[in-house]
Amino acid sequence: MSDVAALALPEAPSRRGLWFDAWRRLGQRRTGIVCLVVLAALAALAIVGPFISPYDADTPDWRAVAVPPGLTDGHWFGTDRLGRDLFVRTLDGLRISLLIGLAATAISLLIGVTWGALAGFVGGRTDALMMRFVDILYSLPFLFFVIVLTVLFGRSPILLFVAIGAVGWLTMARIVRGQAMVLRRREFVEAAIAMGVSTPAIVWRHIVPNALGPVIIYATLTIPQLILYESFLSFLGLGVQEPLASLGSLVAQGAAEMESAPWMLLLPAGALVLMLVCFNFLGDALRDALDPQSHG
């Protein structure tokens, strides 16, 4: 009986990869889907919203100063102390916060994943050096760091990115390093080494894709964290400058008017909280969906 006989198999090759399975599992979780939809709606609103409203974010409307929210005259969210439409400003703030959060997360992903994967895979002295660097950065007091940078370079959005990005990648690096150390021992990585595949190729082809599960989950949790950082900085006056508004600065302005015009605080704060909650729930649902233990 010859062994090398082609084995019959059902015809259509299905691309039932592990990502597809995870996507399907995510779809089964209502919370995750709801949050995804809400976030998508918020993002869409942030982009489109300013075009719907008759007002813009900068022009003060002297006839309607500190007007409460209402459906008359187009100031749906009311106006602020300078008569600027709060709806448009809130959406602007939403857009800026989202942008900063996403961009900063993307940067920290890039740096953190590369750093951690390399350190974890190469190991030894290189790993020790790389992770000690991370430890040192970890122990920097974030706020002092930002203040010093602001004093040295003045306030600017770029500075904001640098400051937030500098902090965001650290935990990502640690997580990925842990994953890389485990993956290093897996047989398919050893097979790749034995075949002569170069280190960068192994890290890129094997380590990173297999470590992506926790990375994605952590990324969805990093976005709200970084948005909060930015909001905090803006709240303190160190972040986004006038006339640009971020949710943080809007909250700061609203807090000053809290007793007389509560909507100036509540509406931007509400938008911020809604966004953060959605990201966190989504991250949770993603973790369940990507958990390799719940396979099959």
Partner: peptide
């Protein structure tokens, strides 16, 4: 070595 060709059926079908 004597073998049995093929492999056990996939029970889903």
């Amino acid at each position: 070595l004597a073998t049995i060709t093929g492999q056990p059926p996939d029970l889903v079908t």
